[in-house]
Design a protein around this nucleic acid. Structure first.
Length: 225
DNA sequence: CCAGACGTTGTT
DNA sequence: GTCTGG
DNA sequence: CCAGACGTTGTT
DNA sequence: GTCTGG
């Protein structure tokens, strides 16, 4: 699954190059948690645009601009049919840029944090969905989720699920509202192991209130198990 | 018909 | 135990 | 995801 | 909004 990530690259070069578009730089963050506002790439009026959305999707039919259940991840296996996600899967897909994500491994009774990083340092693109919720007073909330599926060989030893990461060839078809279901479903596969690396990090990341580049620093070699 | 849920993970 | 906040 | 709160009244 | 359960 994916409940915490980092975005350290200010310039989203891989996305810019793949889509042939210029994008504003983003502020580096090392401890992005659900309910926070995050940069998201979507198509609006036929153009690509980077917008800020709340992480944790609020369906358009929700009575409140929040949910009483977890929506910061959507399962790849069921995203096309679950009431909270299916409309967005059909028409409102997005990319969530990241440098890497955190995963907690259950070791005996306790949890140890790992950082799973982009192998080449360029930004990753998580497969996401977005929604716009409108309140009676004309208020509006943009929100998003990221899709999770099977783990690849880098992540499987520590956790059985991981976020779906798209390659540059998948960016445009994923974002295009006209792409058919069969092609979309085909994109929701674990990414190649070569795209990722992982290392143990400090438990400082456990708290959502801590921030800074030290959070992704590898623990000493002796602690990398 | 109306009311109530709408989600993920992990653990037992 | 369960919900909220980051 | 994990951490931290989980309550009321009245006073400054 | 739409589906399930009573």
């Amino acid at each position: 699954m994916c409940g915490r990530y980092a975005i350290a690259t200010e310039r989203l070069s891989r996305i810019e190059n793949a889509l042939g578009v210029g994008l504003p730089d983003v502020s580096p963050r090392y401890n992005v948690a659900p309910t926070q506002h995050v940069p998201v790439l979507r198509v609006a009026a036929g153009d690509y645009e980077l917008v800020t959305m709340r992480w944790g999707l609020v369906p358009a039919w929700s009575k409140e601009p929040r949910t009483s259940y977890a929506t910061f991840n959507a399962r790849a296996e069921t995203v096309a049919t679950k009431p909270a996600f299916r409309a967005a899967y059909r028409a409102r897909r997005c990319l969530v840029p990241a440098s890497g994500f955190y995963e907690w491994e259950l070791q005996g009774g306790h949890k140890v944090p790992w950082y799973v990083s982009s192998a080449d340092g360029g930004e990753l693109a998580f497969a996401g969905l977005w929604e716009e919720w409108r309140g009676p007073g004309g208020d509006s909330l943009l929100s998003c989720t990221v899709i999770v599926g099977e783990a690849n060989a880098v992540v499987a030893p520590i956790h059985d699920r991981m976020v779906v990461i798209l390659g540059p060839d998948g960016y445009a078809p994923w974002l295009d509202p006209r792409t058919d279901r069969t092609r979309l479903d085909g994109l929701l596969r674990p990414c190649p192991a070569g795209w990722l690396r992982r290392w143990r990090v400090s438990t400082a990341v456990n708290s959502g209130r801590v921030e800074g580049p030290a959070l992704v620093a590898p623990l000493p070699a002796g602690d990398q198990t």
